[in-house]
Amino acid sequence: MGWPNKNLQYFCNLSIFVKFSLSNNQKHLIFSLEALTDNTLMLGVKAGQLDKMGLLFERYHRVLFAFLYHSTGQAAQSEDLVQTVFYRMLKYRHTFLGNGEFRTWMYHLARNVLNDSIRKNHRMVYQADVTLMSEKTVSTPAADIQLEKSQAIEMLHTALAKLSSDHREVLVLSRFQELSYQEIAEILQTSEGNIKVKVHRAMKELKHIYLKLEDGTRQ
C-alpha cells in the first residue's frame, strides 16, 4: 500500500510513536485533559451541555470573586456579581466563539457586569468591607508587629479604595489576578505598551494616596 502523501506518513508514524511511548494512564490523562480545557468545556456548554458549566464554576468562581471583591471592596455584593457573571455566561453562551481564551471572554463579561452594577446604583463606590477587616484583625495574634502590619495592610486597602476605577482595575488584574500584560491588553482591548504605562501610573497614584494616608495617621 503506497502512501499518498509523505507528510501524512510522517505524521502517522509520529503519532504511533507517541502512542506507544506513553503508558495507558498517561494516555488517559492526556485525552481527559484535552476534553476538559476551558474552551472545550465552554464549547460544550454552547452546544447544549449546560451542566458542564459546573466544572467551569469550580475552576473560576474564586478567581472571579477575587476580581470582583478587589474591584468593589464588598464581599456580599461580589458574591451576587459572581452569580450574575455565571448567569450571563449561560445566557450569552452563543457569543463564545472558541477562538480566544475562555478567561478573556469571562473577564469581558465580568467587567460588563461590574460596569452595569455601577451604573445602576451611582452611589455604589469602592468601600472597604469593615466587618471583614475587623474580623481579620481580631483573628490575628495580638503581637504589636503583626498589628502594625495589619494596620499597614488596612491602610493599603483604603488607598486602593481611593484609587480611580480604571487604575484600580489594571492593578487588580495584574497584581491580584496575576495576569500577564498581554492578557490584560486583550481583556481591555488595548496594546500591551498601553497597559504597562497604565500600571505604572496606577502605582504612582497609589503611592501618592498611601503616603498621604500615612501622614494623616502620624499627625
Partner: peptide, 30 residues
C-alpha cells in the same frame, strides 16, 4: 523603591474566600 514596597504589600493583601452559599446559589441557578 516605594512603589516596589507597595507592590510587595499589595501581594500580601488576603482575598477572603467566598462563602459556601455562592456554590449552592450557583447550582440552584444552573
Amino acid at each position: 523603591d516605594d512603589e516596589k514596597q507597595l507592590w510587595e504589600a499589595l501581594g500580601k493583601i488576603v482575598t477572603p474566600p467566598p462563602s459556601t452559599e455562592v456554590k449552592t446559589r450557583f447550582y440552584a441557578m444552573l
